[in-house]
């Protein structure tokens, strides 16, 4: 494959106490590709992303990162203390210096430019997720890691969120590592699926994973059917509140 390799994980295992959380996981992340980790609750999805972005260090196996790999990270839960006054703009400048133009562009890309001056603790869950998505795109990241970016977002907002992630990938040419538990929603945007349940059950293109016996055993054939439901052409847009524009299902 000619596409630039950004990160290679080799035989990653991780235990907490006596409990094995991850068992010899290997995969590669390449530039401009979206990799989705799916798996049931407790499968080790967040643990794996935390190993990739450096939050967890005491694993066995090896993570090879490209030189100066820049990572943007959207955690599963962000709870901003209400005693902390913080504007959205300042939230974006938390760990690095960015120009006004960069801030505006990042927010506009995630369709939340109008939130720039708002206080972070006054945002809804969905708005906060978009703002956090915008922050991950600052500073030209090579890889953005999104841990359940749609948790707390309604279904139509969720569809739009995944489209946005696809658009960001196209514009920034960065790799995306995405944690999700609904393959059917992310499928059209995904290049590689890692189906995780402590060990790597199966991996590859979304179409092949969705027919893999281990995937079906985990998620059942109903889930596999629902992929077909979402395969129809979706030509209307949803705004952040989930209200759709003109509907033209054909």
């Amino acid at each position: 494959m000619a596409i630039e390799l950004l990160l290679r994980a080799r035989d990653i295992s991780y235990s907490r106490g006596k409990r094995l959380i991850l068992d010899r996981i290997s995969f590669e992340l390449r530039r401009a590709q979206i990799t989705t980790i799916i798996g049931p609750n407790g499968a080790g999805k967040s643990t794996l992303t935390n190993i990739v972005n450096g939050l967890i260090g005491n694993y066995s196996g090896a993570i090879e990162r490209g030189p100066d790999l820049r990572i943007g990270y959207l955690p599963q839960k962000v709870y901003v203390n209400r005693l902390m006054p913080l504007s959205v703009e300042r939230m974006l400048r938390l760990t690095r210096v960015s120009s006004d133009a960069e801030i505006e562009q990042a927010l506009a890309q995630s369709e939340v430019g109008y939130l720039q001056q708002r206080q972070v603790h006054s945002l809804s869950e969905g708005e906060l997720k978009r703002v956090l998505l915008a922050r991950t795109t600052l500073g030209n990241p090579d890889l953005i890691v999104l841990d359940e970016p749609t948790a707390g977002v309604d279904v139509s907002g969720e569809v739009r969120m995944y489209q946005l992630i696809g658009e960001l990938r196209d514009q920034l040419q960065c790799a995306v590592l995405l944690v999700s538990h609904d393959l059917h929603l992310v499928m059209s945007q995904t290049d590689q699926v890692l189906c995780l349940n402590q060990h790597l059950c199966c991996s590859g293109l979304p179409e092949s994973v969705s027919r893999h016996p281990e995937y079906l055993a985990l998620f059942g054939p109903q889930v596999s059917d629902s992929i077909a439901v979402y395969a129809h052409h979706h030509d209307h847009v949803h705004d952040i509140s989930g209200e759709a524009g003109a509907h033209h299902h054909d």
């Binding site: 939050l55 990270y73 913080l86 938390l94 760990t95």
Partner: peptide
Amino acid sequence: WRAFVAVSVSREIAQAEGI
């Protein structure tokens, strides 16, 4: 200061972004 404020907002984000 920047690191202290970042850690106050989110330890996870701060750590992942190099603090």
